[in-house]
């Protein structure tokens, strides 16, 4: 070891303080969501709820329609994830293994769109969706995201690493392209598909700008849209309700994250290093 023992203890101390500071907002959120409005406004604030109750949650699901928003978020995220798994792997396979005219051009298009931020395209995309009559519908929320340039790139890179002999063997045995893709390539893509699936689901669940633009009445709100509009609208000072809403948005993701954390973190690391 190059560090001294005392230094190590000191470092543990600093890291622990940092960890508490990073995690505290979440604890505060959950604890706060169980408190009453009056208690939330006490100075100095209380730590544990004086009389913990689920009142805020009951209100969220009865007076406000958080059940409906939750369903919308789930539907959109599931459809977007399924679409990405299918289309990105298919396109990635085509770009990695097949020879066809316009392949280079297609790859250039993918790489260019990879760089374009969402805020740049949302206005013309909205006009497109509006002309198709899909404003304020769930398809309007998920159709533009069924395939992502990032996903195509990720799958292409992964499939490039697979041995080409497998495909040739399949061809010799008389399998068609579709069969080769479904039976040989896809089963080998497990880790890449898992990473893509997790990142896509998460991105869709947390997506804000597009659903904010497209969802115009309550029946198509997703959770972040509903929470943001309530927090800036008439309920802007009802912290109990808002903290409960934030918990509903964050908790499912936290649970999934705890279960799949290894896959998550490896996924992030691989996207960074390439």
């Amino acid at each position: 070891m190059l560090g001294s023992r005392k230094g190590t203890w000191w470092l543990y101390g600093v890291l622990t303080v940092a960890l508490v500071a990073v995690v505290a907002p979440f604890a505060w959120m959950v604890l706060g969501s169980l408190k009453s409005e009056g208690e939330l406004r006490q100075a100095p604030p209380t730590w544990w709820p004086q009389s913990a109750s689920l009142d805020n949650y009951t209100q969220l699901f009865s007076r406000l329609d958080f059940g409906g928003y939750f369903t919308n978020s789930v539907v959109v995220a599931v459809v977007v994830t399924a679409g990405n798994l299918l289309f990105c792997s298919a396109l990635g396979y085509a770009l990695a293994m097949l020879d066809f005219r316009g392949k280079k051009a297609l790859f250039v298009v993918v790489m260019t769109t990879l760089m374009i931020p969402g805020v740049v395209t949302f206005v013309p995309l909205f006009v497109l969706v509006a002309n198709a009559g899909l404003v304020n519908t769930l398809p309007g929320l998920f159709l533009p995201f069924l395939v992502s340039p990032f996903g195509v790139f990720l799958m292409r890179q992964f499939i490039l690493g697979l041995p080409k002999d497998l495909i040739d063997a399949g061809r010799v045995d008389g399998a068609g392209e579709l069969r080769i893709f479904a039976r040989i390539i896809l089963p080998l893509c497990g880790p890449a598909l898992a990473t893509l699936g997790i990142l896509t689901f998460l991105g869709s669940w947390n997506n804000f700008l597009w659903p904010l633009v497209v969802a115009q009445t309550e029946d198509t709100y997703t959770l972040p849209v509903a929470l943001a509009l309530y927090s800036t609208g008439q309920n802007s000072t009802q912290y109990g309700l808002l903290l409960a809403g934030a918990t509903v948005v964050v908790l499912p993701v936290l649970i999934v994250f705890m279960v799949f954390q290894r896959r998550f973190i490896e996924g992030i690391a691989t996207t960074g290093i390439k």
């Binding site: 505060w28 100075a43 947390n206 994250f257 973190i265």
Partner: peptide
């Protein structure tokens, strides 16, 4: 590592709501 990474996966809207409460002048944490 897990703890430091946790905020990244959460919705910015949700954490912003929580932070608005944390940053309150008189009764914020």
């Amino acid at each position: 590592r897990l703890g430091f990474y946790t905020p990244v996966i959460t919705s910015i809207v949700a954490v912003a709501v929580v932070w608005r409460f944390l940053l309150e002048t008189d009764y914020g944490l």
